[in-house]
Design a protein around this nucleic acid. Structure first.
Length: 495
RNA sequence: GGGGGCGUAGCUCAGUAGGUAGAGCAACUGGUUUUUAAUCAGUUGGUCGGGCGUUCGAGUCGCCCCGCCCUCACCA
């Protein structure tokens, strides 16, 4: 290893020789001993920063007697002979420490002399303000909690190398505060979504991640194997068919927030494992789910963002409801300049757009043309409604038009954010559609899920179903351009 | 899979027509008892992603490989 490592191991040995355990067992820590609490800056991650009302304000007269206890990582040291200023960072914030040789005992000064940037320490001390007004802890007692043997990334530029940032996310989180903020916000977003769903009477459930027959979407699955059962299993591509079994079982409002796995390409919008909210509500249709979609996202956004008018990348996004709604066929006509049902013209257009037309169904070709010509215009938020029925094997036929399905997708900033329909609950029609899908091998269906059909045969209530891509919502609400920026450990090639 | 870009010290980055490998931070030694990217003096640190080739000489030019980013294609 490198020289710095050797030097730090040597320090470790010195500490041990002094009878000091460089990896302590515990340190008293509660909500009073957080940097943010001490600085009076709690709760600033989920909301915009609140005005700094420092704890100091309460005891300005004699605050130098105010005792505090704190633990954290040293991220900077500025030593001046027998005096040193350190920046200590915990989960909430950072605070300056002031170590003065004549204010701590000799043994602790020996520890101080062996400290490095990156070490985790605990201190006791009293608060004071420096001449520039920075709240600082005058250290009266110091304990080493964990010795760092490797150096931190550079303090000023942080960790820039994207490869290292994804592969060693722990360093990214230490060095880049905006990254930490993104993931804190991600947690807040998911918590608020759960909060809203619960308020609406939805019950959170967990359905299998390993499925004998993958279903609920058309995507290539990952395959795994159970040794004792001697059978292959598939990581789920969607929880849909299991959640709808629960509707049959009598749970009327269920949802799941969990991972899906799709063995497809990786891009700035696709990770092989990604987080999906799926929700099903009995006795509702896709119109109800449109309201739910709008409401849950607005609820969450309003908890996270200072305003519903926000920017993502170069787009101005206004999340103020109601959101625009347009029919698929109208958008198709508007941007493709031809009717969806006008096969000749659509195929001719597809050819001019270099979309492959050989050995593909008309629906796929037309759908590609839509993606090519319409999606670039969907800054959104916009609901696209009433898709051609053939594109939606799990959706109910439109009540007013047998060629269409009661389905919508939500687009924000050209990204597909949500997908929902009035759920098909006619077991015979569902079986026919599955069989048609099976014939079309391109859709990658493994086999017919007979038990799902069986479940439907016991009658599933009419229901609306909804899927929301959580990672993409987080991208928009935290203004991150790549899905890898909102997934702590994105899938990477093993090196 | 195609196209474009990138890979140099632990980190952030320079590296000029091919001529002995550079800076800042971090680290080490010494000084400094109120600093804010502390500062002053000195020091250490690199198989330039890997391999092969061209050349008297390759970080630099060519080919192959590895990895990452962007983009197109495939894929909802």
């Amino acid at each position: 290893m490198n020289k710095e490592y050797e030097i730090r191991v040597a320090k470790l040995e010195k500490l041990k020789a002094l009878g000091i355990n460089p990896y302590a067992y515990s340190f008293p820590s509660d909500s009073e001993s957080l940097v943010a609490t001490i600085l009076g800056r709690t709760g600033r991650t989920c909301k915009q920063p609140i005005p700094i009302k420092t704890v100091l304000g309460n005891f300005r007269e004699d605050f130098s007697d105010h005792p505090v206890t704190i633990a954290g990582r040293i991220i900077a040291m500025r030593s001046h002979g027998k005096v040193c200023f350190l920046d200590l960072k915990d989960q909430t914030d950072k605070i300056q420490l002031y170590i003065k040789k004549d204010k701590i005992c000799d043994r602790e000064y020996q520890i101080y002399e062996l400290l490095d940037i990156g070490d985790i320490i605990g201190v006791e001390g009293t608060l004071f303000k420096t001449k520039t007004g920075e709240t600082t802890i005058l250290v009266s007692s110091l304990i080493l909690l964990s010795k760092a043997l490797l150096p931190l990334p550079e303090k000023w530029h942080g960790l820039q190398d994207v490869n290292l940032r994804y592969r060693q996310r722990y360093l990214d989180l230490i060095a880049n505060s905006e990254v930490r903020r993104t993931f804190t916000l991600r947690s807040c977003i998911i918590r608020h979504i759960r909060e809203y769903m619960q308020e609406q009477g939805f019950m959170e459930v967990e359905t299998p991640m390993m499925q004998p027959i993958p279903g609920g979407a058309t995507a290539q699955p990952f395959i795994t194997h159970h040794n004792t059962l001697e059978m292959d299993l598939y990581l789920r591509i969607a929880p849909e068919l299991y959640l709808k079994r629960l509707l049959v079982g009598g749970f009327e409002r269920v949802y799941e927030i969990n991972r899906n796995f799709r063995n497809e390409g990786i891009s700035t919008q696709h990770n092989p494992e990604f987080t999906m909210l799926e929700a099903y509500r009995a006795y509702a249709d896709y119109n109800d789910m449109m309201s739910l979609t709008e409401n849950v996202i607005v609820y969450t956004a309003s908890k996270i963002l200072p305003s519903l008018k926000t920017t993502y990348e170069k787009d101005e996004i206004d999340l103020t409801p109601p959101w625009q709604r347009k029919k698929y066929l109208e958008l198709f006509q508007e941007y493709c300049k031809t009717g969806w049902e006008n096969e000749k013209e659509v195929i001719a257009k597809a050819k001019t757009e270099q979309i492959p037309t050989e050995k593909r169904t008309y629906e796929d070709i037309a759908s590609d043309l839509f993606e090519r010509l319409v999606e670039p215009h969907l800054t959104g938020p916009i609901f696209i409604t009433d898709y051609p029925r053939s594109l939606c094997p799990l959706a109910k036929t439109h009540r007013d038009n047998p060629e269409l399905a009661e389905r919508f997708e939500l687009y924000i900033s050209r990204m597909e954010i949500a997908n929902a329909f009035s759920e098909l609950n006619d077991p015979l029609e569902q079986k026919e559609r599955f069989l048609a899908q099976l014939k079309n091998k391109a859709e990658g269906m493994v086999s017919l899920d007979e038990d799902y059909i069986n479940a439907l045969m016991h009658a599933m209530p009419p229901a609306g179903g909804l899927g929301i891509g959580i990672d993409r919502v987080v991208m928009i609400l935290t203004n991150n351009p790549s899905i890898r920026d909102v997934i702590l450990f994105p899938t990477l090639r093993n090196i």
